[in-house]
Computed example of a mutant assay.
Amino acid sequence: MATRVRPSSKRCAVIGGSGFLGRHLVERLVDKGYSVAVFDIRQSYELPGVTFHQGDLCDKQALLTALKDVSLVFHCASPAPFSDDRALFQRVNVEGTRTVIQACQEAGVQKLVLTSSASVVFEGTDIKNGKEDLPYAKKPIDYYTETKIQQEKLVLEACSKEKGFFTVAIRPHGIFGPRDPQLVPILVDSARQGKMKFIIGDGSNLVDFTFVENVVHGHILAAEHLKPDSPLCGKAYHITNDEPIRFWDFMSQVLVGLGYDAPRYHLPYTLVYGIALLLWLLTVLLRPLVTIKPTFTPMRVALAGTYHYYSCARAKQDMGYKPLVSLQEAITRTVASYPHLRKGS
């Protein structure tokens, strides 16, 4: 009778490994001696020691092929949060995650680490040093966040000592760094269009921005500390740079570093939020006739004009988390990685 080979603890899979965070995670895992399988809808690079599996997240058979002999899975596949494709969010974040859990359990995977989001507790009002025991947002700021809440619940509820299947969720906030396709390119594009002259509110609101290498570090620490008797089982953890910064100071440092002017004119928060709300209502009413994509959405205004920073105390205590790269060093390295976005280039 053939005996089942126990998956190697150094063999893992990264679902969404072709994305911004996923690729940084894969590279660090390889550096640490892991054998890595990547599962994604596309392959964007090649790396020695990494096998790529292209497929749809909702295709369980394709997932099972990628998860063969794997003991640890990182699930960081997600559409870009600023998309307005509700069906895609539902399919990837909810239905896809449900399929990932089923495939993990069938393949004998022991650990699943989810990339969640700190926004699952954010309702557009101030959060200062928020802890993980904050309730899920009853009124999420957008549909992306609504599906991330459902996703996190699915993963954490799947944790089972009886089945030998252990799960944990990492909640990063404001991820940035080299190769980021969102934050810096969108910021520069707005500056080039003359849209980065204004500060929403008084500019004093503190926010977490987290360097991608620190997010990766948090994921790997969580995976290595996730054991049957550990406090991580079925829990969520905030991972940030642990250095809240004024939202507009961060934006200014990135813009000035790339040769653009820092925003300097103040607009009242309530006024801008009200206008954004009216524009959003207008787009909803006119959607059957014409597609409008306003620059200012209520979600973006809330993110730019409120306090939202989070405590890493639980991660420090339970897995010894400490940021590897300081915020200033992270900003310097990020700006240096975008020579093609410098003013005049």
Rank of each mutant, 00 (worst) to 15 (best):
K10G: 01
C12A: 12
F20H: 07
V26Q: 00
D31E: 15
V38H: 00
G49W: 03
F52A: 09
D56W: 04
K60V: 15
K60Q: 14
Q61H: 07
A62N: 10
A62L: 09
L64I: 02
H75G: 02
C76Y: 03
P79H: 08
A80R: 03
F82V: 08
D84W: 06
D84G: 08
R91G: 06
T97P: 04
T97M: 02
A103C: 07
C104N: 15
E106Y: 05
T115E: 05
S117D: 08
N129C: 10
E132D: 12
P135A: 10
Y136D: 07
T147L: 01
Q150V: 01
V155S: 08
E157H: 07
A158F: 00
F165Y: 11
R171N: 15
D189C: 07
G194A: 10
G201L: 02
T210K: 03
N214W: 03
H217M: 02
H217R: 13
H219N: 12
A223T: 04
L267Q: 04
T270G: 01
V272H: 05
L278C: 13
L281V: 03
P294H: 05
T295H: 11
M299V: 13
M299S: 11
R300H: 05
H308M: 12
Y310I: 05
Q317I: 08
P323A: 08
V325T: 11
K343P: 04
